[in-house]
Each structure stands twice: as structure tokens, then as C-alpha cells.
Simulated scan of single mutants.
Amino acid sequence: MEIGAKLPSEAELGEQYGISRIVAREALAALVRSGSMYKIKGRGVLVNRPASATRIRVDRSGFADEMWSARGARCALRC
């Protein structure tokens, strides 16, 4: 599907897949929470950009590094 394409309504999804409207609503809500889709009041649920296209965040530090940094110290094992 193209970015911005509108998904079928809850009722249409229910008919198409033989599921209740509540199940369709929960599935759409899960897609919105995951960031795959977005919802506009009065328009419905639309396809979002892939996560890789919207933002890429690479975190090279680990938990221990974050804890050391938070305390203002440096790890003695690092060169």
C-alpha cells in the first residue's frame, strides 16, 4: 500500500475477514500504536511511512555506559 492510502473501515474489515468490528478496531489500534498506520478523525486509518524512512536512531552505548555517564564517571576498562 502507498503512504497515505486509506484502510477499509472497521465494518468493512469485519465483513471482509469475518471478524467482529471490535476485533477490527483493536487490530487497527495496534497498527496505529506500532507506528505503521496513523489515524485522522473523520478520515480513518492511513498508511504511515516505514519506520526506517521516518527516523533511524542508532544507540551504540550500553546500559553500563549510560550509568557511568549519569554519575559523571568514565569506565576504567575503556581505552
Rank of each mutant, 00 (worst) to 15 (best):
R55G: 05
N48R: 14
G4C: 09
V58S: 06
S34W: 03
S52P: 01
I56E: 02
S52Y: 04
A64D: 08
R49H: 12
A27N: 08
A30Y: 01
G14F: 01
I56T: 06
V23I: 02
R74I: 07
S9C: 04
C79F: 10
W68S: 08
L7K: 05
A30G: 02
A70C: 03
R74L: 06
Q16S: 03
A70H: 11
P50M: 12
V32F: 11
I3C: 09
I3W: 09
R57C: 02
W68L: 14
R60L: 13
V23H: 08
M1Y: 05
E15N: 08
E26D: 15
G18L: 00
G14Y: 01
G18E: 00
R33S: 13
I19G: 00
Y17S: 00
A70T: 13
Y17M: 01
S34E: 11
L46W: 15
A70F: 09
E15W: 00
A70M: 11
G42E: 03
R33E: 12
I40C: 06
R21F: 02
F63E: 14
I56K: 05
S34V: 03
Q16V: 00
A51G: 13
V45R: 10
L77G: 09
E66C: 11
G35V: 05
S69P: 02
L7F: 15
M67N: 08
G18T: 00
R25F: 06
R71S: 11
G62V: 03
A53V: 13
I22R: 15
A53S: 15
R25V: 00
R43Q: 09
C79Y: 11
A64K: 09
E2T: 12
